[in-house]
Amino acid sequence: MEVRTIKVFTTVDNINLHTQVVDMSMTYGQQFGPTYLDGADVTKIKPHNSHEGKTFYVLPNDDTLRVEAFEYYHTTDPSFLGRYMSALNHTKKWKYPQVNGLTSIKWADNNCYLATALLTLQQIELKFNPPALQDAYYRARAGEAANFCALILAYCNKTVGELGDVRETMSYLFQHANLDSCKRVLNVVCKTCGQQQTTLKGVEAVMYMGTLSYEQFKKGVQIPCTCGKQATKYLVQQESPFVMMSAPPAQYELKHGTFTCASEYTGNYQCGHYKHITSKETLYCIDGALLTKSSEYKGPITDVFYKENSYTTTIK
């Protein structure tokens, strides 16, 4: 009895394709271990004539594949690729409408935090270190965002349907971005203890939790000093293409032309909904596939993004 075979390709990165001759009487799992086709788990399936010449994702289970996976995804987590594939199996079914010149995501599976993050990423200057993220990001900007969303979920250790947080998501993504040249110098002034300067680099240099107003941050924000008295913390120097200011959701007025974009969060910790506000020729609110415009805006804002380049204080 002759062994019926077909020729397929296996890959971990969709760049390096490895030619395989597979036995049609055995499952993919018996031949390769966990195997995925377009995100779908085909591990328990036997090869079919229609699979001839198709590319299958496999887990990096030998040295060659491990090197290829690390170079593309910059992670050695053995569960990463499987999590990416199972997320992709959902995100490829989502709709990605162009809204006001940006790629958004039609609401499904509690994905409003991903839509808000995706919209924000198209408006701030950011370059990702893992080629996987950078490639998928370019495709997302062009309207094909399924891979990018699935990668975000995998890097953030999230599953489809789980509630997510924009600030946490951005923080994970910033860790995989090139923020080497970003720098922030802060000064804390206390009447009792004097003053202390701190220099922050990388992710810490672009994120701040405690106030939404970048102007206020430049002037000074009140913080408790270690001595128990009130101290003032203010920005001395900022070198970065953008800054992200966050605070627990509270009524906040966004003035046209003073910011790049913002995240609105309605609801409580267990259950809520994100919308995205962007400042173009007027203010726009993007909620999944829905767009509304207004000249002014007041609502429960939790993150505001500002364009920056270089700032030095005039406070002496």
Rank of each mutant, 00 (worst) to 15 (best):
residue 2 E to G: 15
residue 3 V to E: 14
residue 6 I to H: 06
residue 6 I to D: 04
residue 8 V to A: 12
residue 8 V to H: 05
residue 14 N to F: 12
residue 14 N to L: 11
residue 15 I to W: 09
residue 16 N to R: 11
residue 19 T to E: 09
residue 20 Q to R: 13
residue 24 M to Y: 06
residue 24 M to A: 13
residue 26 M to L: 13
residue 27 T to Y: 10
residue 28 Y to F: 13
residue 28 Y to A: 02
residue 31 Q to H: 11
residue 32 F to G: 02
residue 34 P to T: 14
residue 36 Y to H: 01
residue 38 D to Y: 10
residue 40 A to E: 13
residue 46 K to G: 11
residue 46 K to Q: 12
residue 47 P to C: 03
residue 49 N to R: 13
residue 53 G to C: 12
residue 54 K to P: 03
residue 56 F to V: 10
residue 56 F to R: 06
residue 58 V to A: 06
residue 60 P to I: 08
residue 63 D to C: 10
residue 66 R to D: 06
residue 66 R to N: 14
residue 66 R to A: 13
residue 75 T to L: 09
residue 75 T to D: 12
residue 76 T to N: 11
residue 78 P to T: 10
residue 79 S to Y: 06
residue 80 F to Q: 00
residue 80 F to Y: 03
residue 81 L to I: 13
residue 83 R to C: 08
residue 85 M to C: 06
residue 85 M to A: 07
residue 86 S to M: 14
residue 86 S to H: 09
residue 90 H to Y: 11
residue 90 H to T: 13
residue 90 H to K: 12
residue 91 T to Q: 08
residue 92 K to Y: 01
residue 93 K to N: 14
residue 93 K to S: 10
residue 94 W to E: 06
residue 95 K to F: 10
residue 96 Y to E: 11
residue 97 P to F: 05
residue 100 N to A: 15
residue 104 S to W: 03
residue 108 A to W: 07
residue 108 A to D: 04
residue 108 A to R: 09
residue 109 D to I: 05
residue 111 N to W: 06
residue 113 Y to F: 07
residue 117 A to W: 02
residue 121 L to P: 05
residue 122 Q to F: 04
residue 124 I to D: 11
residue 124 I to L: 14
residue 126 L to T: 00
residue 127 K to N: 14
residue 127 K to R: 10
residue 129 N to P: 06
residue 130 P to K: 00
residue 130 P to H: 03
residue 130 P to C: 08
residue 132 A to I: 06
residue 133 L to F: 02
residue 134 Q to M: 08
residue 141 R to P: 03
residue 145 A to S: 04
residue 145 A to G: 08
residue 147 N to W: 03
residue 147 N to Y: 09
residue 147 N to P: 11
residue 148 F to A: 07
residue 150 A to S: 04
residue 151 L to V: 04
residue 152 I to V: 13
residue 153 L to C: 07
residue 156 C to N: 00
residue 158 K to A: 13
residue 159 T to M: 13
residue 160 V to C: 09
residue 160 V to A: 05
residue 163 L to A: 06
residue 165 D to V: 03
residue 167 R to I: 02
residue 168 E to V: 11
residue 175 Q to P: 07
residue 177 A to H: 03
residue 179 L to V: 11
residue 181 S to K: 14
residue 185 V to L: 04
residue 186 L to M: 14
residue 188 V to R: 09
residue 188 V to N: 05
residue 190 C to Q: 06
residue 191 K to P: 15
residue 193 C to S: 03
residue 195 Q to H: 10
residue 196 Q to R: 14
residue 198 T to K: 12
residue 201 K to E: 08
residue 201 K to F: 14
residue 202 G to Y: 03
residue 204 E to S: 10
residue 205 A to E: 07
residue 208 Y to G: 01
residue 210 G to K: 02
residue 211 T to I: 10
residue 211 T to K: 04
residue 212 L to G: 07
residue 212 L to S: 07
residue 213 S to V: 01
residue 214 Y to A: 06
residue 214 Y to T: 02
residue 215 E to M: 02
residue 218 K to H: 00
residue 219 K to N: 09
residue 222 Q to G: 09
residue 226 T to K: 15
residue 227 C to F: 01
residue 232 T to C: 08
residue 233 K to A: 13
residue 233 K to D: 00
residue 233 K to I: 13
residue 234 Y to A: 03
residue 234 Y to F: 08
residue 234 Y to I: 09
residue 235 L to T: 05
residue 235 L to Q: 01
residue 236 V to C: 05
residue 236 V to H: 04
residue 241 P to K: 08
residue 244 M to H: 03
residue 245 M to I: 12
residue 247 A to R: 10
residue 251 Q to S: 10
residue 252 Y to S: 01
residue 254 L to A: 07
residue 258 T to C: 10
residue 260 T to D: 00
residue 264 E to C: 01
residue 265 Y to W: 01
residue 265 Y to M: 01
residue 269 Y to R: 10
residue 272 G to K: 02
residue 272 G to E: 00
residue 274 Y to T: 05
residue 274 Y to R: 06
residue 276 H to M: 07
residue 280 K to Y: 10
residue 281 E to M: 02
residue 283 L to S: 01
residue 283 L to C: 02
residue 284 Y to L: 13
residue 284 Y to H: 05
residue 284 Y to M: 11
residue 286 I to F: 02
residue 287 D to K: 01
residue 290 L to S: 15
residue 292 T to Q: 08
residue 294 S to W: 15
residue 297 Y to L: 02
residue 297 Y to M: 00
residue 297 Y to N: 14
residue 298 K to I: 15
residue 298 K to R: 13
residue 298 K to P: 06
residue 299 G to W: 05
residue 299 G to I: 08
residue 300 P to M: 15
residue 301 I to M: 01
residue 304 V to Q: 02
residue 305 F to G: 04
residue 305 F to R: 00
residue 307 K to T: 13
residue 308 E to N: 00
residue 311 Y to S: 07
residue 314 T to H: 14
